[in-house]
Design a binder for these strands. Structure first.
Lengths: 223, 223
DNA sequence: CAGTGTGAAAATTTTCACAGCG
DNA sequence: CGCTGTGAAAATTTTCACACTG
């Protein structure tokens, strides 16, 4: 993980903290819906499966404002977390590669919410280009830059094969996206400045196998 | 992350290392296909985007056997990595929740390979129960334990709503799975011994927004 | 007095740098 | 000589524990 420039900006938030913020966000939304006014670090930590001290340290990075003796004001904290996650705008997303996963994401709630919206779908397969998925027309690869610009896309999602991934990433960066989520089974890199995150479901399964083997070694299934 | 029992077993592999093993695995497969006999830590590290010292340290945990002056024997190393990931058997998977994502995973290559195979599909929706996805009949929730046992499933994948996730996790653990991959937007826990990993695509998007905002702040898109 | 914010300690992970082997 | 394996240092992250505040 080498993306903490910490050059001009004010103190970057450590990446483990950034990774936990969405989890806090979710829990806070749920609390807000239950009309909770305040939460203590202990209760919130318990709900999300994190140590309370870690939670407090994380929140203090947001210039947090809890109340000693009481806890955190739910709606105030929610606002702070949303601000840290930059959820004060709607992010336009381009999905490149419309296989099983790409299609599923394009239709998913998370990608069609208040915070995120699919603005472009790209594929190389002529059979798919021109069709609509979730109301958006699939464009071909050469239209990538044009569509990214016209739809003001700033986040790219790669769900292509591993072989195509680097080329797509390069095009997305060139077109001006600010960050990329890569689901393709390949390491891709981009110019310094664009953050690229990797989520490889195949790898996740293999990690699971490693731990599963250890677990089953101790509790051999009763069959 | 609190799952390093390190009680009876021989030295557990640190979780950051476990998370990188699948990435090395992928790169090694590709090298093997290109008929490469050996790789140096530097070349392999470059290919996967990791520091060479980190890579060497990771491999040394596998009781690694590189050759000084030459590098690592590709096929030997591949075998070691596969052994550490427990890929010497076919893992049966149960997918619970067949919405967009669940269906996509059920049909994906990664879940229908030599290492992993879908053995059970479960959903609560009566419209879906009884249909086939990728040749497997979808069963209802009450059949979970029975099917997990009869199909010798040892890994569970949760792709339900957040609200249903904990109940499903509990049932999976009770049925005897060794590890769970949770895609539902909720924190779930299980008995000590079962490793539960969380992959939340919604959270990933929010993390991306955070970094995207920082990137765009410095390179405001030219439109 | 309940509960935050944070020094300081502990634990973990990464990285350097080099001895030593093939 | 080139490259691994690893002591030791550095960097990062987590956790404890408590002073302090509303």
């Amino acid at each position: 993980m080498a993306h903490d420039s910490s050059k001009g900006a004010r103190a970057a938030i450590p990446s483990p903290t950034v990774a936990r913020l969405p989890v806090y966000h979710r829990a806070l939304l749920s609390l807000a819906q239950n009309n909770a006014d305040t939460v203590s670090s202990i209760d919130l930590a318990l709900a999300v499966g994190v140590n309370a001290a870690t939670l407090r340290r994380d929140l203090s990075r947001l210039g947090s404002i809890g109340t000693r003796g009481t806890g955190y004001d739910v709606s105030h904290l929610l606002a702070r977390v949303e601000s840290a996650l930059a959820l004060d705008r709607t992010w336009m997303i381009a999905i490149v590669g419309l296989g099983n996963l790409g299609k599923a994401l394009a239709r998913s709630e998370g990608f069609n919410s208040e915070d995120f919206r699919v603005g472009a779908l790209i594929d190389v397969n002529p059979t798919i280009v021109g069709t609509r998925i979730g109301g958006i027309v699939v464009e071909d690869l050469d239209s990538l830059e044009r569509v990214v610009k016209s739809e003001r896309v700033s986040l790219g999602v790669i769900t292509t094969t591993g072989a195509a991934a680097q080329d797509v990433a390069t095009r997305l960066c060139h077109a001006g996206v600010g960050a990329i989520l890569n689901f393709a089974p390949a390491h891709v890199s981009g110019p310094q400045g664009v953050v690229i995150r990797h989520v490889d479901l195949g790898s996740e399964l293999k990690v699971l196998a490693h731990y599963g083997a250890r677990a089953l070694q101790q509790h051999p299934s009763s069959s």
